[in-house]
Design a protein around this nucleic acid. Structure first.
Lengths: 224, 224
DNA sequence: AGACTTACGTTACCGACGGTAACGATTTGC
DNA sequence: GCAAATCGTTACCGTCGGTAACGTAAGTCT
């Protein structure tokens, strides 16, 4: 029985995995606007099973997001924990993040970007009208993801940098701020590719290193 | 005739305004999940009129967003153009942004935050199921808004700071990065209110001023 | 004045979506 | 062999964004 029970649980977990992989495929193919029907079809089953496994669409998405996020978080943590100087660590972390979103832009867009129709050939539901454009409700969850990253970074900062009293709040402000900077700059960069990854890393690290304060005013500028 | 024509145009523009105000009311009341039907009802008309005026939901949203965004942009530009020192200007800009989102959090959430149900009493469509949770497709447009802010700031930076050659790209990276920082930190702050506005402004300005590079390691920390 | 255009407004509808109820199979345990 | 639980289905609901078709009042032309 325990045996049986264990086998069952194992089986359902395997099933879950399988469904998640199918969902992954569909989301990567159809973009964030993938419908539950489409996912079910890809998995070779029908909707109610999906709902039995994940409750609702948000549940499925959450499971999907956790999968992808954990890998990214692990990579970032590794970069953050490298035994090098602070500047090198910051650069490595930025580069790790940018590498990740560069390597799997569709995953990135799915996780972070509310909507964009990351599909190659079918940006919108094939025929009929033109834009049912149901999102995957990604927006509902992308913020939590960024928050998670921000809190994580805040923790690292608080652990390593000695602010005075009340430093915890500063560390959190910095954590969220830096994550937001990375996110926004990365999003822009991924979209326009105006420079190499290394150049962006340098620019952002320079910004974080106070180059804004140190930079000279423009010659012919308005004076200040 | 020209007279007539002018009157007509004026009338339709007034109508547009009126509809936008109604939409505004509904969005502020029902949160970003407001439906076209609800907006039409609030305006005392029916859907097709909305569609004739704004094309589709995105059009309505865009018109709504422009209204609110322009004011914010103007305020930010004023702060950015103040005849003070750079640090003061940065602080003033941050403070202006935070003041804006603090003063009208619902508007902010509508513009920037994909979904959250900013409503006070009716977070989700009253009866029936529980979560139809159609967003206002805000996610589709919040990115453009942030992009716009980022480009705007990039322009200011490029105008005022003298990078070497290739400086335009650096300025844009900084512009988007800083806007992202402001956005993420502001979002976190608005949500948790962990400190006063002034404190957050100081923390972020310090971050931008290179305090990360200058800060001392923690005493008992892992060494670096 | 009476026909004609033009804009405004309506009702009624479409297809797709998220989500669920109700009903078969098929395996499991006694 | 037989009940129970599990896996899967079909068929459906309500809501949504969006549109076609139709009516109506007002200004325009002859």
């Amino acid at each position: 029985m325990d045996n049986r029970r264990g086998e069952r649980e194992q089986a359902t977990e395997d099933r879950r995995r399988e469904l998640l992989e199918a969902a992954d495929r569909v989301v990567l193919r159809d973009g964030p606007g993938a419908s539950m029907n489409a996912i079910a079809a890809e998995a070779g089953i029908t909707k109610p099973i999906l709902y039995r496994h994940f409750g609702d669409k948000g549940g499925l998405y959450r499971a999907l997001a956790v999968r992808h996020t954990d890998a990214l978080l692990a990579a970032l943590r590794a970069a953050l924990d490298a035994p090098t100087g602070r500047r090198e660590r910051v650069e490595a972390t930025l580069d790790t993040y940018l590498s990740a979103i560069e390597a799997r832009p569709q995953v990135y867009r799915f996780l972070m970007h509310p909507a964009d129709g990351g599909a190659a050939d079918v940006p919108e539901p094939p025929a009929s009208g033109e834009a049912t454009e149901r999102d995957f409700e990604v927006g509902r969850h992308s913020a939590p993801l960024l928050r998670r990253l921000g809190e994580e970074l805040a923790q690292v900062i608080a652990d390593r940098i000695d602010f005075g009293p009340g430093g915890a709040v500063i560390a959190r402000a910095w954590g969220h701020g830096i994550v937001g900077m990375m996110h926004a700059a990365g999003d822009w960069w991924l979209h326009e590719r105006p420079c190499s990854r290394a150049e962006l890393v340098q620019s952002l690290a320079d910004l974080l290193w106070g180059r804004l304060a140190a930079a000279a005013d423009k010659a012919g500028g308005p004076g200040l």
